[in-house]
């Protein structure tokens, strides 16, 4: 709360129109299922400029992460090599406001699954 806070939209940021295209590009248009992919992100970001996220998809070849409400949604793509001990990875990302973070995993059999999680970005500033 307070002076100089950047103007943020009140409502959660809607998914950017590019999101569907980016997913289609990653999957080659294949159907995307659910399950087998875990996306972990905080309910409320401590800082929208550095939000910790983790993805885990046992057996995946690669996992793409998108910030659906950012002006440009791509975040990262993790490609797991032969020596990856798990298909788990963590990083820190920028979120322009409250929105859904989306992960899509390409599984070993060539199928695709997705998971998403809403992260709230708040002005904050009060307390007990």
């Amino acid at each position: 709360l307070g002076a100089g806070a950047a103007l943020m939209t009140i409502l959660p940021l809607r998914a950017n129109a590019a999101v569907d295209d980016l997913i289609a590009e990653f999957t080659g248009g294949a159907e995307v299922g659910e399950g087998g992919l875990t996306l972990t992100a905080p309910e409320i970001a401590e800082n929208g400029n550095t939000v910790p996220i983790s993805v885990s998809a046992p057996g995946a070849a690669s996992i793409m992460v998108l910030a659906a409400g950012n002006p440009t949604p791509p975040v990262a793509t993790f490609n797991f090599g032969p020596l990856a001990a798990s298909q788990d990875a963590s990083t820190r990302i920028r979120l322009a406001g409250t929105q859904d973070v989306i992960a899509v995993a390409k599984m070993a059999d060539g199928s695709f699954v997705r998971a998403s999680q809403t992260v709230k970005v708040t002005i904050g500033g009060c307390g007990g």
């Binding site: 009140i10 309910e43 709230k120 904050g124 500033g125 009060c126 307390g127 007990g128």
Partner: peptide
């Protein structure tokens, strides 16, 4: 005026979000 509303909505959601994990435990600005 728009930004003042943004602040009130933001703080209100930190108190009155039905999920306690989204509550920060203070009162309304």
């Amino acid at each position: 005026g728009e930004f003042i509303k943004v602040i009130l909505e933001d703080v209100a959601d930190n108190i009155f979000n039905p999920d306690p994990y989204y509550q920060q435990g203070g009162d309304m600005v």
